[in-house]
Design a protein around this nucleic acid. Structure first.
Lengths: 177, 177
DNA sequence: TTGCCATCAGACCGACCGGTACGTATTATC
DNA sequence: GATAATACGTACCGGTCGGTCTGATGGCAA
């Protein structure tokens, strides 16, 4: 699963075949199919694990500051760090959603939960800080985060992440008055 | 090309085969290969056309208001309209970039130009309006737009587009002082 | 020791992929 | 009416895909 997760993220879910996964993992074909009935199941399992990682990520952000406003901005600090890593490819859940496209999309529910989770995190902090319309602000900050992912990925330049943080600060300031 | 563009957008560039394109377009295999040497060339031609559409789109936004601030927000108005259409799937250029993934990505240059074009549009209006840091603001608004695309696509709910507009208004207001 | 079970290696399957070959029909040009 | 260009349909190619089958190997528990 480590191998699959790495390959899926680096080159896309449907651009990586079973053959490559088993070769790189040093595992026999039937061993993989013993644990996962199909490639789809493997994909879902990987996405599930990504979901857990995302939760840990948010927990880390929450630990980085004691004030709700700081906890909101900490997410953007962590994102800046992540975006600067050379193999950054955006959220795996969102990537997979784009990639699988179409309507019958195995990844979309995961990406949906992903967005909802981050949105709620922001909204909770915003409510605690007494800001206006915490739900709306949460969704706006989520958009900023996803947009920054896209821009960093497309431009190949992590500087956009800093602008995302300053934009977030500006939105938060606007919701404080 | 109409057929290819439609199918590519609806189901993803690599999830649509040559066979389906020629079948739906009512065209012979060799006819297609007479006009485009390979599927890659067809994809590039389609993306090229999408680029032109995007330029028209921005021109329409520019015509919707006489003041630079209005011209900036008009982009978000047009986006709201677009996001509400049932077959909305985000920017075709960004989608293709995600989908093709990897490093040798035929779509990324297109998406890059796409982002740069929108960013510059915002920056020009911002400069004309005398706002602070027009380039930075332009990139922030671009992130907002791309993020809104992602959120609308993932949630399947176009309401996020309205929040994107209000966030844009807030950012613009913040840059005015 | 015996039997079980996970793992291994790799041949194999049908389906589909992008792309080519080939021969025919239609249309426009002169 | 001959010529050339374009379109058509379809069989076919090699390669890759996800997934199955077989048979051997080795550790572990009863």
């Amino acid at each position: 699963m480590d191998t699959a997760a790495r390959l899926f993220y680096a080159r896309g879910v449907s651009n990586v075949g079973i053959n490559e996964i088993i070769a790189r993992a040093g595992v026999a074909r039937m061993t993989l199919y013993h644990h996962f009935p199909s490639k789809d199941a493997l994909i879902k399992a990987v996405l599930e694990r990504r979901t857990a990682e995302r939760d840990e990520w948010l927990d880390r952000a929450a630990d980085m500051a004691s004030e709700p406003l700081g906890r909101m901005l900490a997410v953007f600090d962590l994102f800046m760090e992540w975006a600067a890593s050379p193999d950054f490819r955006g959220s795996p859940l969102v990537s997979a959603t784009f990639e699988l496209g179409g309507q019958l999309n195995a990844a979309r529910p995961f990406a949906q939960a992903h967005g909802q989770r981050i949105e709620r995190y922001f909204a909770e902090q915003a409510r605690e800080a007494g800001l206006h319309d915490p739900e709306g602000l949460g969704q706006q900050l989520l958009m900023l985060l996803e947009g920054a992912s896209v821009v960093v990925l497309v431009k190949g330049d992590a500087k956009a992440a800093e602008l995302a943080k300053s934009a977030a600060a500006s939105l938060i300031a606007g919701a404080a008055s």
